[in-house]
């Protein structure tokens, strides 16, 4: 594990719990049928690390704001994140989420998809409550941030699915970075940071350094996630091993392998990617993984991410230069290490 301090882990859980409680309050028993409420609440109750709301709440606090002022936004982030997970699991036909069956495996595809819709819809209620928490003007600005993020995320997800459908094998590391900027970084790091900074500073902060820090952090996080999907323990990681390989996701490792492999190996990889996902058996996926090891693709991705992670550490200091030393600021600094060195 990353060697995170007990104080850090305790604070992370505190932030995450605060956001989850508020998020769950938008799915009241009295307001919805159990056919919606039960599946929609399921992933929230399974926990999760709560990195996104924690980043939002801590950033707000670091810039002098009250944590409570950012709670509706943090809850909206958690609700939208959960909605994306539900639909992502359906799109990828994944089996496990947070160590248990995915929502569509447990409740069926139709109810799962509807639960994802419901989570996205109630996130709007949380954003509406921002008017009360931070005033109409700032709430409108926060709304714009969410609007931009949501467009980026669904567009990035569409690109990833399209690449898989079209059997793309001509991609570069730059294509991959553009993809994860859209599909991961906006909702994982950029939005939480920017919204937290906006609320904490009452809209006074220049957000450009936050863009830099957020992307470096989110990119290093996503590449680490991709590597863990290949090399991590399923018990710790909570998703099926080699899931990305079976789905044919265009990860940095796969892009590297396609570029580095000799013609014979490349032909095998291209053939593998031309199969339907159901045909990509564990044995064949293991063989592709072995090729990745042979060609240094995993090591390449790990090093590539380290370069970005180093930049994230420096960019943090720039982005938080106006924030005085505080527990919240120290928490975010430690969060950088936690996110890029985690083993789950």
């Amino acid at each position: 594990m990353s060697g995170a301090s007990p104080q850090f882990l305790e604070q992370l859980e505190t932030y995450a719990s605060q956001a989850r409680i508020v998020a769950a309050s938008y799915l009241p028993e009295s307001g919805f049928s159990p056919y919606l409420r039960v599946p929609a609440s399921e992933y929230l109750h399974r926990g999760g690390k709560g990195l996104r709301p924690a980043l939002c709440l801590a950033t707000c606090s670091a810039f002098g704001g009250e944590v409570g002022a950012a709670l509706p936004s943090a809850a909206a982030i958690e609700l939208l994140h959960t909605a994306f997970l539900v639909h992502d699991d359906v799109e990828d036909d994944s089996d496990l989420r947070r160590g248990e069956p995915t929502l569509h495996q447990k409740y069926g595809r139709a109810l799962a998809i509807n639960a994802g819709d419901g989570l996205a819809v109630v996130a709007l209620s949380a954003l509406r409550d921002n008017e009360r928490a931070i005033g109409r003007r700032l709430a409108a600005r926060v709304w714009s941030e969410f609007d931009f993020m949501a467009r980026q995320t669904v567009d990035g997800q569409a690109c990833e699915l399209g690449w898989q459908r079209d059997r793309r094998t001509d991609l570069t590391p730059d294509d991959y970075l553009e993809l994860i900027m859209k599909k991961t970084c906006w909702y994982t790091t950029l939005l939480p940071l920017r919204v937290g900074a906006l609320i904490g500073s009452r809209g006074a902060l220049d957000l450009e350094p936050m863009l830099r820090f957020g992307f470096f952090l989110g990119a290093a996080f996503q590449i680490r996630d991709d590597v863990l999907n290949l090399t991590g323990s399923q018990a710790l990681y909570g998703k099926e091993a080699l899931g990305d390989l079976r789905e044919g996701k265009r990860t940095l490792m796969l892009i590297h392998l396609l570029a580095a492999a000799n013609p014979h190996d490349r032909k095998q990889v291209v053939g593998y990617l031309a199969l339907d996902p159901a045909q990509r058996s564990g044995d064949v996926a293991e063989h592709v993984l072995a090729m990745m090891d042979d060609h240094g693709s995993v090591a390449f991705a790990d090093e590539f991410a380290r370069g970005i992670a180093r930049a994230a550490g420096v960019a943090f200091e720039e982005a938080f230069a106006a924030a005085p030393d505080s527990p919240a600021r120290r928490f975010i600094r430690e969060l950088v290490t936690y996110m890029v060195e985690r083993d789950r």
Partner: peptide
């Protein structure tokens, strides 16, 4: 490789800086 990662990521940020604002 680390430098490649950093530079590639930095160029993505640069492009987004112009779009986002």
């Amino acid at each position: 490789v680390q430098r490649f990662g950093f530079l590639s990521a930095a160029s993505v940020v640069k492009r987004y800086t112009e779009i986002v604002d």
